[in-house]
């Protein structure tokens, strides 16, 4: 372990302990890590989005890169119009967002917001209809009785039937145009049971994911920090 890695491991360990100190109560060590985390994360996303979104989609098309000339140099030096020049519109729409901080001109930011909201609405309209709604309905239209060469596959038939009943009854629970009484009420009740199983499973998975992260942090503290430092110092 080199000096820079050892320094990093110590910083990471101290910050980990600062955050875990919140288990006792809110304290200055936790606040230290909390504020630092927010600031550093915001800085991370700014740099990350600059390199991954702005550079390939705005800066390189306009100003060029090592691979080739950009649209602006082409226009200014050779008088050639390149379609990439239209990227300026994207830059202007993005810039309008910054007008939110000038109260008198805040309305200008609506152009950028409207563009992103409108485009997002168009994209979600198609994507959700295709990938979620229709695909999920298609996945539910399955044979309730599965027949194989050896006869009826009881296990698969039961699974398919339960799945169909579960989806339909849970959808009935979400149907609010008619009062949930009689047959509709019974189906809605069954739907609630399926939804409860689903929520329970989601909860179980979430808890296990968090526990897994916690084990990872404990393992870091014991193996990387304590053992790593002792090894670096030549004590073990």
């Amino acid at each position: 372990m080199d000096g820079l890695t050892l320094l990093g491991t110590w910083i990471a360990a101290i910050l980990t302990l600062c955050i875990l100190s919140f288990l006792y109560k809110d304290n200055p060590f936790y606040k230290f890590a909390e504020y630092l985390f927010v600031g550093i994360s915001a800085g991370f996303w700014v740099a990350y989005q600059y390199h991954n979104l702005l550079v390939p989609n705005l800066i390189e098309p306009l100003f060029g890169s090592a691979q080739g000339k950009g649209a602006l140099p082409l226009l200014l030096t050779e008088g050639q119009f390149d379609l990439r020049l239209l990227t300026i519109i994207a830059g202007l729409l993005g810039l309008t967002m910054l007008f939110r901080f000038i109260p008198k001109l805040a309305w200008v930011s609506r152009y950028g917001i409207a563009f992103s909201v409108g485009l997002g609405a168009g994209l979600f309209f198609v994507v959700f209809l295709q990938a979620n709604c229709l695909a999920q309905i298609k996945g539910t239209i399955i044979p309730p009785v599965v027949i194989t060469d050896g006869g009826v596959d009881v296990g698969s038939s039961l699974a398919n039937s339960l799945l169909i009943i579960g989806v339909v009854s849970a959808l009935i629970y979400f149907y609010f145009s008619k009062e949930h009484t009689g047959v509709l009420g019974g189906a809605a009740k069954l739907g609630i049971w399926f939804l409860m199983v689903s929520f329970g499973a989601a909860f179980g998975y979430t808890v296990m994911a968090r526990i897994s992260l916690l084990i990872g942090r404990m393992s870091f503290l014991i193996d990387d920090w304590i053992k790593g430092t002792l090894i670096a110092l030549g004590l073990i």
Binding site: A121, F125, C133
Partner: peptide, 27 residues
């Protein structure tokens, strides 16, 4: 495979219909 898929599927179908209608309202 069964309980969770059925519940999540119903939620997804309902939510996607909500997204589609909200998108239409925006447009």
């Amino acid at each position: 495979d069964i309980g969770n898929t059925a519940g999540q599927r119903a939620i997804l179908i309902g939510a996607s219909l909500g997204v589609v209608s909200t998108s239409l309202r925006i447009l």
